[in-house]
């Protein structure tokens, strides 16, 4: 099971569940690439068992929501123009 976190700019109660979201995920796998960020399309649920991978949510100033969510990553997205 992969483990990510993401930042949301709203209150946790306003987190959109089961809808496709474009956002930034940070990979929490230990090692030198820990905290690598990437844009992705994904769905989340506050039910920690609903989707295959684990997601921790942080609010805009880094506050960690103490209970984990689950996430299904649909695709990773590159937002930087090619050649740069």
């Amino acid at each position: 099971m992969a483990e990510y976190d993401t930042y949301i700019l709203t209150e946790f109660s306003e987190l959109k569940e089961d809808e496709e979201i474009l956002g930034v995920l940070r990979d929490l796998a230990p090692g030198t690439r820990k905290y690598r960020s990437t844009y992705a399309r994904f769905k989340v649920s506050k039910d920690a068992a609903k989707y295959p991978d684990r997601l921790w949510v942080r609010l805009g100033r880094g506050q960690l929501v103490p209970t984990p969510c689950s996430i299904s990553v649909i695709e990773f997205v590159n937002v930087i123009p090619k050649g740069l």
């Binding site: 930042y7 930034v24 960020s37 805009g60 100033r61 880094g62 937002v79 930087i80 123009p81 740069l84």
Partner: peptide, 22 residues
């Protein structure tokens, strides 16, 4: 890179707070 922006922060800042949001 011109005309592309991506998410940064939050970060503990010189004011002694994490003020500017992601």
């Amino acid at each position: 890179v011109p005309n592309v922006m991506i998410e940064e922060a939050p970060f503990g800042e010189y004011t002694g707070y994490r003020t500017s949001p992601r």
